[in-house]
């Protein structure tokens, strides 16, 4: 059986909000090391990979592997019934067909319980190759989100170029073109505003901005984001969690 407790429901609410627009039904695999999810978005352009390590829970128990087949939107709907600072417990018996969620307000002696029906989902998993990326950029998650939002007013695609001078985002559409360039920098006072670039060779890739905008909904999970790119390959975009991560593998636009 699975029993996992979080001190604040907001932790799971934010994670589910970060993936719900992309995913429909998918399996969450639970074992003694934690919870994991891997699923493609409906258009197969983004692969979402979530890892919630058992250390990230205030209490965690999973004696035997449990697969939770869930509709992510249904999970989001139920989580909306929890207050952000409620204590949240996830429970599922072995071979059960439901996930039990309890939301506790320790101050008000309130306990709510919801049973979410589980589904049998026949899901395929992809082998994510171990890759040495040509460029790795660590930057503020909020700044990346804002930059992409600004450029989405111009075009449905953004081109990202990374070289030793910095990272450049550009877009061109009917009304004109625009770009934002960031140089590598260290901000001693606000470390999350630093821009760190590690490069083995310059790289340039183009991406759909609507999907990128969905990915950056994870900005509430982490102050920084790690963007990794290699020419002609999907980008890896990672938001770190206290014990785990949300990663997105994002297929680029490619010249014929």
């Amino acid at each position: 059986m699975l029993e996992a407790k979080l001190d604040a429901a907001s932790q799971l609410k934010k994670i589910v909000e970060a993936i719900r627009d992309m995913l429909g039904e998918c399996n969450i695999e639970c074992n003694e090391t934690g919870l994991a999810l891997q699923s493609l978005d409906k258009s197969h352009i983004v692969l979402v990979s979530l890892l919630l390590g058992s250390d990230g829970f205030s209490e965690y128990r999973c004696d035997r592997g449990v697969t939770l087949g869930l509709n992510i939107n249904s999970l989001a709907t139920v989580l909306r019934c929890a207050n952000n600072d409620d204590i949240l417990t996830l429970r599922s018996e072995d071979r059960a067909n439901e996930l039990i969620l309890t939301f506790e307000d320790s101050k008000a002696d309130r306990i709510s319980e919801f049973n979410l029906r589980l589904m049998d989902i026949d899901q395929e998993y992809l082998a994510i190759p171990e890759t040495e990326y040509a460029a790795t950029v660590v930057m503020s998650a909020a700044v990346l989100q804002r930059t992409l939002r600004d450029l989405s007013a111009l075009s449905e695609a953004v081109t990202i170029e990374i070289d030793k001078e910095g990272i450049r985002f550009s877009a061109e559409g009917d009304l004109g073109k625009g770009s934002t360039h960031f140089k590598p920098c260290v901000d001693m006072e606000n470390a999350e505003n630093s821009i760190n670039i590690t490069l083995s060779e310059p790289v340039s890739l183009s991406f759909n901005l609507q999907y990128f905008s969905n990915i950056t909904k994870a900005s509430s999970l982490s102050s920084t984001v790690t963007l990794q790119m290699t020419a002609g390959m999907p980008a890896q975009i990672e938001y770190k969690l206290p014990s785990g991560h949300v990663r997105y593998y994002f297929a680029p636009k490619i010249e014929d």
Partner: peptide, 14 residues
Amino acid sequence: PPKQATIMSFFAKK
């Protein structure tokens, strides 16, 4: 114009 690739063209099924 460039075409949108899918993840399936890069990552194989397990």
